[in-house]
């Protein structure tokens, strides 16, 4: 039976068809696997004042001897450095903290927006969707510089607050965690709103009526019906935000203080400041390991949802 089926499917699958399948694999190989291998190999090397700035360098001319020497020179020293210096550990923890907290804030801010978008008359929805996507039309960096303008001492925010008499003296917003959170929540909002909108828009409103009919007040129906049904969107949006936020460099660098350093900034300093490529690579490898966990959890959830739907 299997042989029969495979024979049938194989019959028209000529070389051309296999080539098409090959394209994404080739892409992944060239632009993901190979760079990944290079970074991994760098993370096992030692820094050196040389060109390239690390050791050992693989010398194909030395033959077998060279290969043996090369592998003998690789070590896990860089990882040991990462765990022995509190600078690295604390920047990891800081990144995770910023990632978690801002994802949470994003959820709280984005849910009502997405919910409202899904509930307005259908002909208005494309307009609102447009409004959510519109900021992407301006360069990201420009928008962050705009925030510097808004948040600085004589900036727009302080002006407005003073005009309304809410504050007496100008508040220092810039170079603080608050500014980082504002910048992150602002920048990533569409990535949270869109997946939430996608699930909420599909939700059948009669389910909420059914809940009310069965004696469930509105606020409770939200937790018992809306949130569970929005779970796939919540998971997708949270991942879409959490992962890049943890590795975020530009926003904390421009809006944050020099006291709180996220892993992206540490990486930058190691690579461009200290020119220590091996340690920077080890940092990147470790960051990847941290981020793989939520991705795997999400994949697992997705496959369960798919099974349930069947």
């Amino acid at each position: 039976m299997t042989a029969l089926r495979s024979a049938k499917t194989r019959a028209p699958s000529t070389l051309g068809r296999r080539m098409i399948v090959l394209v994404p694999y080739l892409w992944l190989c060239i632009f993901f696997l190979v760079p990944f291998a290079i970074v991994f190999r760098l993370s096992l090397s030692q820094t050196a004042i040389a060109q390239p700035p690390y050791l050992p360098v693989f010398d194909p001319a030395a033959g077998w001897e060279g290969i043996r020497d090369f592998f003998a020179a690789l070590s896990l020293d860089n990882y040991r450095i990462l765990f022995s210096d509190t600078l690295y550990v604390s920047s990891y923890l800081k990144s995770l903290q910023v990632g978690l907290l801002s994802t949470l804030i994003l959820l709280v801010v984005a849910f009502p927006i997405a919910y409202g978008m899904a509930r307005v008359p259908r002909r208005l929805q494309p307009l609102l969707l447009m409004a959510v996507i519109l900021p992407f039309w301006t360069a990201f960096l420009i928008r962050i510089y705009a925030w510097i303008n808004i948040l600085q001492r004589d900036g727009l925010l302080n002006d407005v607050l003073q005009t309304f008499g809410l504050i007496g003296e100008p508040v220092t917003w810039l170079a603080s965690d608050t500014a980082v959170y504002i910048g992150i929540v602002y920048s990533y909002l569409p990535f949270m709103v869109l997946p939430l909108y996608a699930v909420l828009e599909k939700m059948d409103e009669s389910l909420l009526e059914a809940a009310a009919d069965l004696g469930c007040p509105r606020w409770k129906a939200f937790w018992l019906v809306t949130v569970p049904l929005a779970l796939p969107g919540i998971a997708a949006g949270s991942l879409l935000c959490f992962i890049p936020i943890v590795g975020e460099f530009v926003i904390p660098d421009l809006l944050g203080s020099s006291q709180t350093i996220m892993i992206g900034q540490t990486l930058w300093t190691e690579f461009f400041g200290n020119k220590d490529w091996p340690v920077a690579s080890a940092l990147a490898m470790l960051l990847l390991c941290v981020l793989i966990v939520p991705i795997v959890v999400y994949q697992h959830m997705q496959s369960k949802v798919l099974e349930r739907g069947r």
């Binding site: 389910l207 009310a212 009919d213 069965l214 509105r218």
Partner: peptide
């Protein structure tokens, strides 16, 4: 009286069963 406090129950046309 809001719907959740009425002693009536309804079967919806599309049944509106909770899919989760």
């Amino acid at each position: 009286v809001p719907p959740h406090r009425r002693a009536v129950n309804m079967m919806f046309q599309n049944y509106a069963l909770f899919p989760h």
